[in-house]
Simulated scan of single mutants.
Amino acid sequence: MKNSMIRLGALAGVAFTLAAFPAFADITIGVTIPTTGPGAALGIPLKNSVDLWPTEIAGEKVKVIVLDDAGDPSLATTNARRFANDDKADVIVGTALVPGAIAVAGVAAEVGVPHLAPSPLPPPVAKGWSFVLPQNAELVSRHLFAKMKADGVKTLGYIGFSDSYGNQWVDQFKKLGAEYGLKMVAEERFARPDTSVAGQVLKVVAARPDAVFIGASGTGAALPQLGLRERGFTGPIYQTIGAVTFDFLRIAGKSANNTVFASGPVMVAEDQPDSSETKAEGLAYVTAYEGKYGAGTRTQFGSHMQDAMIILKKAVPVALAKAKPGTKEFRDALRDAIENGGPFPVTHGVFQFSPSDHYGLDDRGIVLLTAKDGKFNLIK
């Protein structure tokens, strides 16, 4: 009887000891993206790509929580706070539109959670806990401005979004344009929900620029494209990386022919040489995505989610060697593993982050495309 009581007491002590230690959660990833609203054309491919993510990383189960932010920065903030405070997320991914991504970055910095941004954060925000998955504006701009110079362009008209996405291209022009012999003779803006840009187009055409630079994304980039051709502008048009979607080609139709686009290499993964460091991951993503959603459905926005997972699959094992998911120590270790664990060959280039560079991509992350008859073609 006495021995039985001793054994029961020992078991109770073990149970108490085990209860005193927290039960560590799975690796939790919070994803905020616009699956409704003006950013849905960007957000839906992101969500579709999340559906391709593995259920485990390094033997640990992955819990993914996806919330719609409808393209609203305040809702993106609310989602990020929920991930951090309620779900104890180990990493936050989001969101598709720059204003919302800036808001998420603020939360990530405040609470100390690694943040992978699938939209181009401006330099003052791309630091600390936030890492940028798209190509940065300077890298994109240099490739486009160099092409403009090679094409003999001297004067440029600009039409872009009236938000931080549109602002960054004007900022880059002011910083770099003179270096490439370019002068901006007209600058017009429009809001993402606008259904007409006729007034802006008329003002740009009246300035008689050699070429027009459009700083917009998704299907919204087709509005000025169509308007310029309808108003008889026959000069070259240059589009940013945000316009490179098959939906853009469908909406813009023949007006897109011969336009020059900056793009991530995933959009022409099959056309890359075998020596390209991005070809294998690009083809793997395209095969998986279009195998599920149909031919011609790939977007470079969706592939940012693939790149996020490629980075996490390499960084998580490093962090697991130091701490368990669900803890501050794990989040700290994961941030450090992302910042110092490269190179990460992905669909969009080769990331090499550092304490002073949270963009991480170089010239391997940009290709120039043109459009003809509803297809993107690599400019050799």
Rank of each mutant, 00 (worst) to 15 (best):
Val107Met: 03
Gly360Leu: 03
Asp69Arg: 04
Leu368Cys: 14
Lys2Thr: 12
Pro114Gln: 02
Arg229Pro: 05
Asp274Phe: 11
Ile6Leu: 09
Thr95Ile: 07
Ala337Tyr: 15
Val170Asp: 13
Phe21Pro: 00
Leu139Ser: 09
Val140Thr: 13
Ile237Trp: 14
Ala96Gly: 03
Lys313Pro: 00
Glu339Trp: 01
Ser130Tyr: 02
Leu249Thr: 03
Asn340Gly: 07
Ala222Met: 03
Pro118Arg: 06
Gln272Met: 14
Ala321Trp: 04
Lys174Met: 11
Gly232Glu: 12
Asp151Asn: 04
Ser276Glu: 07
Ala19Asp: 09
Val104Ser: 03
Phe353Leu: 08
Asn167Phe: 09
Leu368Ser: 13
Gln135Cys: 02
Arg142Tyr: 09
Gly177Val: 01
His348Trp: 12
Gly341Tyr: 13
Arg142Pro: 09
Asp72Val: 13
Gly232Tyr: 12
Pro265Trp: 04
Leu202Arg: 12
Val140Leu: 07
Thr219Arg: 08
Ala178Arg: 13
Glu138Leu: 10
Gly9His: 06
Tyr359Met: 03
Gly326Leu: 00
Phe351Gly: 00
Ala10His: 08
Leu116Tyr: 00
Glu230Tyr: 13
Ala221His: 14
Val93Phe: 01
Glu277His: 08
Lys63Ala: 09
Lys203Gly: 11
Asp68Phe: 14
Trp169His: 15
Ile92Cys: 04
Thr55Arg: 04
Val153Cys: 11
Gly128Arg: 08
Phe161Gly: 09
Phe131Asn: 01
Thr234Trp: 05
Pro124Ile: 06
Ala146Asn: 12
Val113Leu: 00
Ala319Lys: 01
Val125His: 08
Val107Cys: 04
Val50Ile: 14
Ile338Pro: 10
Gly71Gln: 05
Ala41Ser: 11
Arg231Asn: 15
Val93Met: 02
Leu176Tyr: 07
Gln272Leu: 15
Val204Lys: 04
Ala319Gly: 02
Ser276Gln: 09
Pro273Asn: 09
Leu121Asn: 12
Gly100Asn: 12
Phe351Ser: 01
Arg229Thr: 13
Tyr158Asp: 07
Phe213Asp: 10
Asn48Ser: 08
